[in-house]
Design a protein around this nucleic acid. Structure first.
Lengths: 156, 156
DNA sequence: CTGTATCCTTAAAGATACTG
DNA sequence: CAGTATCTTTAAGGATACAG
């Protein structure tokens, strides 16, 4: 967020995640990297972002450990790191939500596995395999909770 | 995004999703709603956001159909709609990513089902149940692809 | 092709005071 | 408690020109 607020300081992993990829362009650049783009100019054409802005975002994503610079210095490739690739479930979940709720189930992009089998809607489950929904999910203080967070969940 | 760019116009459900919840505060407010918060002042205290900003975000989330105003006019409740609840997998996926990669696996907030069974890391699979990873996922033009999107995927 | 350097614009966020 | 109304600040984004 612009003035004053720094999400990455909040005691919440969602806020910290948004501190790295919470701006409008980052997730779109990462999406393009999943599509296979790796050139500066390809990212630029795909999103239409201004070149100086793209350079700034790429630098930030590299600093965050999400992208890595490879290849020649004059004509580098931008590739996802393991940390970047780990964003796939979150990106797909957001994309699926957008497909259903913002694109009227008419997806601009279709997702499959290597054999062409369609990717199923992301769903939550317990380690035992039971489905978890918005109605059944519960939140509690975790090992990383600070006193304020712990107090917040203690009184519910 | 601020000047000029309007993500919701792009031919991509991820961009459209980010057009609704892509700013820094929206997902945190929605997270608080999942935690059970529903009062203006509770949202305000939880995130520390300025009151006028909070009012603006709540209004935008209601306009987007993600929150609904309930109860008395003078002391309303803000509740998640079905569309808002449908964001749970995306929020959990982002939170889990933040737990692992930005909080060193020391989660401030723990997720369980109603019986206390821990929520497993979100993973992708095909409708047939096969795991889908960053290495095996494939992208193609979907039914909602415009000519430019179709051409983009046609040449890969 | 891949950027960097400037300058400019603007929307988002903050602070503060006030109202029903 | 739940906002609204102003005013100010600022950082993100855009346009453009230039460089290796």
């Amino acid at each position: 967020m612009p003035p004053k607020s720094d999400l990455s300081l909040l005691n919440c992993s969602l806020a910290r995640a948004l501190g790295s990829v919470g701006d409008g362009w980052s997730l779109l650049i990462i999406r393009d990297a999943f599509f296979g783009l790796s050139r500066f100019s390809d990212f630029q054409k795909s999103s239409g972002v201004a070149r100086n802005i793209l350079a700034r975002r790429l630098e930030a994503l590299i600093a965050a450990g999400i992208l890595r610079r490879e290849g020649s210095d004059t004509r580098p490739l931008y590739r996802l790191t393991e940390k970047g690739r780990a964003l796939l479930p979150a990106i797909v979940a957001l994309m699926q939500w957008g497909d259903h709720w913002e694109s009227e189930d008419c997806a601009p992009v279709a997702l499959t596995d290597a054999e062409g089998g369609p990717v199923a809607p992301v769903r939550l489950e317990t380690s035992a395999g039971a489905a978890v929904t918005a109605e059944t999910i519960r939140f509690a203080a975790g090992p990383g909770a600070d006193p304020r967070t712990a107090a917040f969940f203690a009184r519910r």
